[in-house]
């Protein structure tokens, strides 16, 4: 909107094109921007690979694991890593590697449902808050911000206190706690889209708010949704791990990385490796989704190139 009039004004007033701030250095900035877009985006690459690794591990675990991850066997208790037990065994004689594999299912499942809940609530709320009158949008955001005072883990503990601990409760609690960050981001994206010329044109053509919301705003904020989903996934993985660690997450015997950590704690002096493997798995998953989010952000908006 603000671009057009100034363009006209300047060409008529002076023979030289206007010197907008930074215009003089633009060539180099363009060159840098172009270069980075062409260059392989390392965050996207590393993050994508790590996420793929975990997804593949989860998928393979449905058809094959080296051992039954829930098989208790007193004969094989606390074995060191070997060709038979790649990551060794825990105090019940269960194979750690198999548990890690099956645990990735829990992690991904909780993450998917939690992010799904957050997106299904957060995206419409965000778009709505961007399209309603300003004061109402601000009010919605105030309420939204209030929810930020309830982090995912706290909400999940509250839910667990009332409804008892279960995977379902954990997923919903984490999902609800992730709604505010979605809503806030999508609202600011919506406000930006609404200022564009094509929305103005659509309005001028008599399109109703619903059509503008679904046809113009939603497709244009979808990249934001993708980025936020990836980042929220990382938060969900962290929350699930902490929750299982505290004993409020996935109940036994279903393997979960957080509970593996908890079980390892009493054996830290005996077998610290039992803490290391699930710990690394959690870190890899969180790192993967964080990097994937960063990479997607760079991909969608090269201007933000070297921030964050």
């Amino acid at each position: 909107m603000s671009e057009l009039p100034s363009e006209h004004a300047d060409t008529s007033a002076t023979p030289l094109s206007p010197n907008r701030p930074g215009a003089e250095t633009n060539p180099t900035q363009d060159a840098v921007g172009r270069r980075s877009r062409r260059r392989l985006n390392p965050s996207l690459l590393v993050g994508g690979s790590l996420v793929c690794l975990i997804v593949v591990m989860a998928l393979v675990s449905f058809v094959w694991t080296p051992h039954d991850p829930t098989l208790v066997n007193s004969a094989t208790r606390l074995q060191e890593p070997s060709s038979d037990y790649w990551f060794g065994t825990d105090k019940f004689g269960r194979d750690v590697f198999s548990q890690i594999m099956v645990g990735s299912r829990t992690t991904l499942f909780v993450g998917f449902v939690a992010v799904g809940v957050a997106a299904v609530i957060g995206v419409p709320v965000g778009i709505l808050a961007g399209m309603v009158p300003r004061w109402f949008g601000e009010l919605l955001m105030r309420g939204n911000d209030l929810l930020l005072a309830f982090p995912a883990l706290l909400l999940a503990i509250m839910f667990a206190a009332v409804y008892g601990a279960s995977t379902l409760v954990a997923m919903i609690a984490i999902g609800i706690a992730t709604v505010p960050s979605f809503a806030r981001l999508i609202r600011s994206g919506t406000l930006q889209v609404l200022r564009t010329d094509y929305v103005l044109a659509a309005r001028a053509a008599g399109r109703g708010p619903f059509a503008i919301g679904t046809r113009h705003v939603l497709p244009n904020v979808s990249s934001l949704v993708t980025v936020q989903a990836s980042v929220s996934f990382a938060i969900a993985v962290l929350a699930e791990a902490a929750l299982s660690f505290l004993g409020f997450g996935t109940p036994p015997p279903t393997p979960s990385w957080g509970r593996m950590l908890q079980e390892s704690q009493e054996l830290l002096f005996l077998a610290p490796r039992l803490a290391v493997f699930p710990g690394v798995a959690i870190a890899v998953a969180v790192l993967g989704f964080n990097l994937l989010g960063d990479g997607l952000r760079d991909r969608f908006d090269p201007k933000l190139d070297d921030r964050r």
Binding site: A234, A283, L287
Partner: peptide, 28 residues
């Protein structure tokens, strides 16, 4: 980026492993 991916409780367990269990410098 790596630090962000490690939750505090995991960092705690790892620190205990190193500084309390292996090195014995600090109480667990």
């Amino acid at each position: 980026q790596l630090g962000v991916a490690i939750p505090a409780f995991l960092a705690g367990i790892l620190l205990i492993t190193v500084f309390a269990v292996k090195l014995g410098w600090l109480p667990a």
